[in-house]
């Protein structure tokens, strides 16, 4: 019994980070409707930024968020303006080529500038733990979970209650009608991409105290984020949050009770099932949001 709870806690904690990174992707994928394969590379850049700020200036990784998040917000805006906007109306294949190329370029630039080494930030709290009724909780993982939860709630509030948020949601539902209603869609695309990048960057900041960074670190996270977004439904932040936790827990239980080597296979299996049975996602907004499924 104790083991089951311990496994559940571990899964939920890492699931929070998956959720945060997926929320970033959902903003981009849901609003801008671009399949961004370079998503993980934004995460990688944020992790490297936090690493170097720590290495060169001794800045605590959590504090470095104050610099890293705005920087990657701008980076996201720039990507949208320079790379995505010109191919906005092109076929999905073209967009995939462009973002896969971007991902390869960023990975290899990282390889050139920072080498293939695995970089780890040294902090005093990296291995500190809490023990609650014999359940062990890693402090940096707990912080990651709580901050992810808080920031997703904040985003939820922003989308629900502000004018800009409502405009973004309108675009998710129908971007042609949104445009007809006078929403400056192209400008909001910039905002959505920037916000998406910033949320992903926050995920990177929260990972760096307990994870290493290297040029290829983003790849697995890109895949997980796509699964979570499809599972949760395009444009649904609460769905993404639950989807992230779900994948974390599946991974943890699958890893412990089936085999650690098979945990990816298990959630990819779920991914395929969802695509077949409910392409708009478990919490999707219904018709028209099954962009990734077989149309």
């Amino acid at each position: 019994m104790e083991l089951i709870i311990q496994v559940l806690v571990s899964g939920l904690l890492i699931g929070g980070v998956y959720a945060l990174i997926s929320v970033g992707l959902n903003l981009i994928f849901g609003v801008v409707r671009i399949i961004n394969f370079a998503h993980g590379e934004v995460l990688m850049l944020a992790m490297y930024a936090a690493f170097w700020l720590n290495k060169l200036f001794g800045m605590d990784p959590y504090v470095s968020a104050l610099l890293v998040l705005p920087a990657l917000f701008l980076f996201g805006v720039l990507l949208q303006r320079v790379i995505v906007q010109p191919i906005q109306e092109a076929s999905a294949n073209m967009q995939i080529f462009a973002t896969v190329a971007l991902s390869l370029i960023l990975q290899n630039l990282a390889l050139i500038f920072w080498k293939g080494d695995f970089r780890t930030v040294q902090t005093s709290y990296a291995m500190s733990t809490l023990e609650v009724m014999n359940i062990i909780i890693s402090v940096p993982r707990l912080i990651a979970f709580l901050v992810a939860l808080a920031s997703i709630l904040l985003l939820y509030g922003f989308l629900k209650h502000t004018f800009l948020g409502k405009a973004l949601r309108a675009i998710v539902e129908d971007n042609t009608v949104a445009r007809l209603m006078g929403i400056k869609v192209d400008r909001l695309y910039l905002l959505a991409f920037g916000l998406g990048a910033a949320f992903t960057a926050l995920g990177g900041i929260l990972l760096i105290p307990f994870s290493s960074v290297y040029p290829m670190v983003g790849g697995p996270f890109t895949l997980i984020a796509f699964i979570v977004v499809v599972l949760g439904g395009l444009g649904s932040m609460s769905g993404t949050f639950l989807g992230g936790l779900f994948i974390g827990v599946v991974e943890s239980f699958g890893g412990t009770y089936v085999s650690p080597a098979l945990k990816e296979a298990i959630y990819f299996g779920i991914f395929i099932l969802v695509l077949l049975v409910r392409p708009q996602g478990l919490f999707g907004k219904g018709k028209g949001t099954e962009e990734i499924g077989l149309k």
């Binding site: 496994v7 980070v17 990972l207 994870s211 790849g219 943890s252 412990t256 085999s259 080597a261 945990k263």
Partner: peptide
């Protein structure tokens, strides 16, 4: 066995 690129080896 486990995948080396994971961020959680608790299992």
């Amino acid at each position: 066995p486990y995948a080396a690129n994971t961020s959680d080896l608790s299992p």
